[in-house]
């Protein structure tokens, strides 16, 4: 892994964090009625947030890819 690659990883982490923060605040505004209150919308946001963390912080996709790549070797 090159250093440049890792700087990109740090940047990506920051973008993911920003998206999570925005979504969290949006959720809060939906709930407190400043945006039209809607449970399905909040559910959608919460699933989206979880997907972001699982994919970019917990590397689920990468883990499964590595497993599949080895199987074809």
């Amino acid at each position: 892994m090159t250093t440049e690659n890792n700087t990109n990883l740090l940047k990506r982490g920051a973008y993911v964090f920003l998206s999570l923060a925005v979504l969290t605040i949006l959720e809060f505004f939906i709930a407190t009625g400043r945006v039209a209150a809607s449970i399905p919308l909040m559910a959608l946001i919460m699933i989206g947030k979880a997907a972001l963390v699982v994919q970019y912080y917990m590397h689920l996709g990468k883990t499964l890819q590595m497993d599949a790549a080895e199987a074809h070797e």
């Binding site: 709930a31 449970i39 909040m42 919460m46």
Partner: peptide
């Protein structure tokens, strides 16, 4: 991420 909306926001 799941607990917060389900307990606090819904």
């Amino acid at each position: 991420i799941f607990v917060y909306p389900i307990l606090y926001l819904f």
